[in-house]
Design a protein around this nucleic acid. Structure first.
Lengths: 124, 124, 124, 124
DNA sequence: GTGGTCTAGACCACG
DNA sequence: GTGGTCTAGACCACC
């Protein structure tokens, strides 16, 4: 469960990476509503991070409504199934929009993008 | 020329934002080989930034081969036409790959993505 | 009897919430001198709490003189009628003083408060 | 500016106390839109706290929309004047409602409360 | 000089 | 055993 690798070289701060991994686990359904997250200190040990760093991840996720801390008994996955699909689509859609905007602004045509997309989707 | 807005709230550092804008201007052809970039202090004043910040952008762009500083006469756009197309494609391709990876990992199917893409390309 | 809801999200610890509810029951007269409190394990089961948590509540209430534990026969409500009115007033008075202090410090006038008070007292 | 005293004995965590003080300063107008907050390390030194503790306060206030961090140049007060009155009223109103609820539930009458209020408002 | 991230580790409240 | 708070101090990115 929650098996992932920290990229030391990444410009993205460690705590953001861990946060991303957990969000993806929730959105993909690998972590379901009511599931218990690993304890802060436990996860910290596994990832060889300082407990404070993992705590920061959990605070963040709680702020954003993905998980819910319970005094003395850990964190549970909170998000309601109905909302998940909407979140998923909007995350991807927003990023894709940005990317298209950028592509157009540097001179890509609609066809260029369609071709690139087709190539990527069929190659991997 | 080079008219853009800094997003104070963005997690992207200011100097990265400015750098992005200039690269896009070059890749799009709005800034052509040999064009003179605005002087550091001038651009800094327009954008209400510290000159150090703009200087950092120019050093970066010079490092990456987009522009060329000339003692006493400012910075000129440098890049050779042949390279531009390659750069353009690889920038967009890399980001698109990342995005697709993410989409798949949270459960999108190939069809989901094709549908989303079609919708975005036709709507705006 | 003693029917209440724990607010998991509250910053107030669970045991404090339970304690508050019982004190209010005593001050309001719903629990009278000599009444028997539910057994620790029984109340814990009803509230879906750890018995330790309920035990802590009872120890606290005993410390503060509201109830009295009797070996083998549970806890009884203890407090003497004379004291109750004084306690009631001082609890409310202390909290109200704090609130007024706060209101004044952020710029409320005496009239603002009187108006707010009137509105609340007549509306609900 | 921002002159306050930490209550070591308070059950309220230090960082919450500092946060409260700053919010009150903003709501009262002592800190106005655009004002610069003391640097994290500076305030930490004055209050004899660890910089991390003050940083937590600032992160919190930023989350709640009261202030806005600017990379490398500190935090500014953000909140828009129009909103302030609304926030002020709702903070006090919510707390007052809770208090009245409690008072009624332990047997206070409307008159009891009006009398208490009158006494407090005229005494101090 | 300023904030952002991270580590190491202590102490306490809660369940 | 679990999270919450706090300290001390390091290192880096940004302005």
């Amino acid at each position: 469960m929650t098996r992932f690798k920290i990229d030391e070289a990444s410009p993205l701060p460690v705590y953001q990476q861990v946060k991303q991994f957990i969000i993806i686990d929730i959105l993909s359904g690998r972590l379901k509503e009511g599931d218990k997250l690993p304890p802060i200190r436990g996860l910290a040990k596994i990832l060889r991070l300082n407990p404070n760093t993992v705590a920061k991840v959990y605070y963040n996720l709680e702020d954003e409504g993905f998980i819910q801390g319970k005094r003395g008994s850990g964190y549970l996955v909170k998000s309601q199934k109905q909302k998940l699909d909407k979140i998923k689509v909007s995350i991807i859609e927003d990023e894709l929009k940005e990317l298209l905007k950028k592509a157009f602004s540097i001179g890509f045509s609609k066809e260029d993008i369609e071709n690139l997309m087709r190539r990527l989707l069929n190659n991997e």
